[in-house]
């Protein structure tokens, strides 16, 4: 009997925690998404257990677990961690050949990551401390329109009139929306205007050329964002499998590849203080960077 080798990645985001279980070829066997809540460690454990159950893999068969995301240092059972910038890039590079620009739109932040032909990350940008251009913006708009965020996309499908939300910030956009509602504008057109505004904010983060890949919870749940991105950039926008779990997937690949935590990688190659690099082990010892 051959021993199966499985790996896990946990993306501890500020809004949701995602877990992914993969096999040695990077095939996804199970995923789970949980609300992060106040206790990131508990959410990580719950997401991990749920993903294991879906994958039908016993925890004992997991060779290594790596974490990523806002709460990456709170995942106590992780053997190592990388930033979400690394994991999104790593995950996308598994599916799409570079050079490519990854646009990740999550609940609380948006980021743009550029990968070269070899899948190596060459630049990144994160949005400033601001909800505009993220999922929180859509939550706020849905609240004002009196619908669930999940219903926003369907609502926008009925849009007939092109409206603009010109405000720079989420709070101002909210009041602008109220003014438009009072002047009799249709919710469907307002929902569409919100999507357009979000895409504009993302577009302002970077010059987009060449192939684009869109990931993140907003991309997963709001297909409208992808079609608007396509329209806006005039290029192909690829949505890879499990876009919301891309960070966790990247972390599971890091676990599989024994991606070396930053300090260790440097010691291995630089004029370090002599500690051994533990590349390709990734197991047992926690290779946390922080």
């Amino acid at each position: 009997m051959t021993l199966m080798r499985y790996y896990a990645g946990i993306d501890s985001g500020s809004w949701t925690t995602k877990a992914v279980i993969i096999d040695a070829d990077g095939g996804v066997l199970g995923t789970a998404v949980k609300r992060s809540g106040a206790d990131l460690a508990v959410a990580a454990r719950q997401a991990y257990d749920a993903a294991l159950a879906r994958a039908d893999v016993p925890a004992g068969d997991i060779v290594a677990v790596w974490s990523t995301g806002f709460g990456r240092h709170n995942v106590e059972f992780a053997n190592g961690s990388r930033t979400e910038l690394d994991c999104h890039g790593r995950g996308v590079a598994h599916y799409v050949r570079g050079p490519v620009t990854v646009v990740d739109i999550g609940g609380q932040d948006a980021k743009v990551i550029r990968l070269d032909a070899g899948g190596q990350r060459v630049a990144h940008r994160m949005n400033r401390k601001c909800a505009a251009g993220t999922g929180s913006f859509l939550d706020e708009i849905a609240l004002r329109l009196g619908v669930e965020t999940g219903a926003l996309d369907g609502l926008a499908a009925e849009s007939a009139e092109t409206l603009e939300l010109s405000s720079f910030c989420t709070v101002f956009a909210g009041t602008e929306l109220l003014t438009l509602i009072r002047s009799g504008k249709r919710p469907a057109d307002l929902a569409m205007a919100a999507y357009r505004s979000l895409v504009k904010r993302v577009q302002a983060m970077e010059v987009f050329h060449g192939a684009m890949v869109a990931t993140g919870g907003v991309v997963a749940h709001h297909p409208r964002v992808v079609s608007l991105l396509r329209e806006a950039t005039g290029g192909e926008v690829v949505v890879p499998p499990h876009p919301q779990e891309m960070g966790a997937f990247g972390a599971s690949l890091a676990a599989r590849d024994g991606a070396v935590a930053v300090g260790d990688a440097l010691d291995a190659h630089g004029n370090g203080d002599g500690r051994e690099a533990s590349a390709a082990t990734g197991v047992g010892s926690r290779q946390d960077v922080g």
Binding site: R82, T83, E84, L85, D86, Q120, R121, V122, A123, H124, V262, A265, L266, H269, V289, G290
Partner: peptide, 9 residues
């Protein structure tokens, strides 16, 4: 951290 990862990689 992301920047350092990138430079190291």
């Amino acid at each position: 951290e992301g920047f350092v990862e990138q430079l190291a990689d």
